[in-house]
Computed example of a mutant assay.
Amino acid sequence: MRNLKKLAKAFSERFDYLVLTKSPNLAYAVGMPDALGLVLELSTGRATLYVSRLDYARAKATAPVDKIVALASTELPPRRPGEELEIASSFLDVAKRLQGRVASDSKELGVDVSTELLDLRSVKEEWELELMREALKITERAFLRLGEMRLVGLRERDVAALVYKWFMEEGADGVAFDPIVASGPNGAFPHYRFGDRKITQGDLVVVDIGAKKDVYCSDMTRTLLMGNPGPVLKDAVYAVYEAVKAAEKAVREGAPAADVDKAARDVLGEYGFANYFIHSTGHGVGVEVHEPPRLYATSKEVLKRGQVITIEPGVYIDGVGGVRIEDMVYVAEGGVVLNRVPHLL
Rank of each mutant, 00 (worst) to 15 (best):
A246S: 08
K213F: 11
A297C: 06
A258G: 04
I199L: 14
S122Y: 08
T74I: 12
A257T: 03
D173P: 03
L92E: 15
A103P: 07
M1K: 13
I278M: 07
S114W: 04
G202D: 00
R324F: 05
L151C: 09
Y296N: 01
H191E: 15
L71R: 00
P77T: 05
F189K: 14
D203R: 06
L38D: 07
V215M: 12
D196C: 00
P81T: 12
T139N: 01
K6R: 14
V51E: 01
G153P: 02
L54K: 15
E248D: 09
K107S: 11
A182D: 00
T223Y: 11
E333G: 14
I209A: 07
K165C: 05
V260K: 00
H343E: 14
M220L: 15
A176N: 01
K234Y: 12
F189I: 15
K245H: 09
A243S: 08
D208R: 02
L26K: 00
A27Q: 01
Y276T: 05
E128K: 01
V341K: 00
Y192C: 03
R305Y: 08
G184V: 11
L7A: 11
A243M: 12
L92M: 14
I311A: 06
L344P: 02
G187P: 08
V287T: 11
A161I: 06
I138H: 00
A243K: 04
D158K: 02
D261F: 14
V205Y: 09
I138S: 08
P292E: 06
G82P: 11
D66V: 03
R46W: 08
V175Q: 09
E126V: 14
E134H: 01
H343V: 11
M328G: 01
H279A: 11
